[in-house]
Design a protein around this nucleic acid. Structure first.
Lengths: 223, 223
DNA sequence: CAATTATTCAATTAAATAGTTGAATAGATA
DNA sequence: TATCTATTCAACTATTTAATTGAATAATTG
């Protein structure tokens, strides 16, 4: 019988398929890593310090809830997020989580402190230094995201390619790296790589969206 | 020991607290109902056809993950969403889910078919008829959401108050009801109430955001 | 103050889930 | 063809979870 109650049950069951996928910390970490770009099972296993079999199992539940897709490349199976929308959704989960739990904020700060010398930079500092031509702004997200939208003046070097392309960066400028926002760790990694190679680097913890809001606000004030 | 791995584990555990809350169809339904406004345990129990004890238990997990808050009102305990951001987050979950699963779309359509005579109206039809002054546009979301943003020309009557305020509506105009978008059922209920009271009503399945996008696109075309 | 009402608590059961282990596949290489 | 490698499968254990039941609270009403 397909009455209203049953229809609702069906609908919420479908919604919950995604929720179930997001209910395991390990799966959330896998999704986060995949939001940096496609990865093999083995690579995910290393990055998360989980057994290969376990990662494989998690990837199957993620495949079932259509959050990831895969394709075989020779011996390897390469997984990736099924849609860019998923990356945005994860970001909003992070933000919501921070809003509800003070400890999330604290953990993040401890994490940044652990990465010594992770100097941040604010949006207004960035704007000022960009206008003076003092800094190079580096977008380390996957190319597609950069192409969709980026902070004006930014150049794109996805984190995966940063090590190879270091030479294309000027050494006499400071570099400011950014990615998707506070809980996006690609910019943290980027700053570390840059510093290890003698380039003075800062992390911008804001996202493209934050930048737009900042612009709207400051032009709004001028009126 | 608080090394990088442990920090990551902690962080993803926190994120997963919210995910866990979203992993049960029943809890998602409770959240959806609460996004229409504050409700007592009993009211939620009736609306979901779950036992009171069961609803109470779910509400406790939701309280623990900070998605809902409550306050005692005499004999009753009134629960509500902890933040407006949660309502938006749920909407994006619905949209993501529809994107990933064709069946979600199908279930929705069966649901609308089950509500006989649920005539929809498109954004461009609405615009035309609004300009001609043929229709009254009715926003049935909670007052706060209307105040934050609404489709220009819309009047606000939250679904909870619709029955009492029916008399304030003109009977010689068609009414178009809208709420948060496709999976928001308040507008469905509104159209039913209106029709039952001899008012010719249509449902707009778009959200305020959809309307903005529609405006941007149509003004864009004029350039 | 006894009865009523709304909610929560505590204990139980059945089902679902996460992680481990070792074997099975399937593609690549030698 | 034999061997190696990346991944998946299947079986199992330990936990966690959802829902039910009946009792316990706590505010309200007569």
């Amino acid at each position: 019988m397909l009455n209203e109650r049953n229809l609702k049950n069906l609908l919420y069951q479908e919604f919950a398929r995604i929720g179930k996928s997001l209910s395991s910390p390990k799966r959330l970490e896998i999704l986060d890593i995949l939001s940096q770009g496609p990865k093999s099972v083995e690579a995910l296993s290393k990055a998360t310090t989980m057994s290969v079999a376990n990662v494989s199992q998690h990837l199957q539940t993620l495949t079932n809830s259509r959050l990831v897709t895969f394709q075989k490349k020779g011996n390897y199976v390469i997984y990736e997020l099924a849609d860019v929308a998923i990356s945005n959704f994860l970001t909003s989960l992070h933000n919501l989580s921070e809003k509800q739990f003070v400890q999330v904020q604290q953990i993040k700060e401890e994490f940044l402190n652990a990465h010594l010398g992770m100097d941040g930079i604010t949006l207004s500092e960035l704007k000022e230094r960009l206008e003076k031509g003092e800094v190079v702004l580096l977008d380390v997200r996957p190319k597609e995201e950069y192409e969709k939208a980026h902070i004006p003046g930014a150049i794109s070097i996805p984190i995966e390619e940063l090590r190879e392309k270091l030479s294309s960066l000027p050494t006499n400028y400071d570099v400011v790296a950014y990615c998707r926002g506070q809980y996006c760790l690609m910019s943290v990694e980027a700053v570390e790589i840059l510093k290890n190679n003698g380039i003075n680097a800062h992390r911008l913890e804001n996202s493209v969206q934050d930048w737009h809001q900042f612009q709207d606000k400051s032009t709004g004030e001028l009126k």
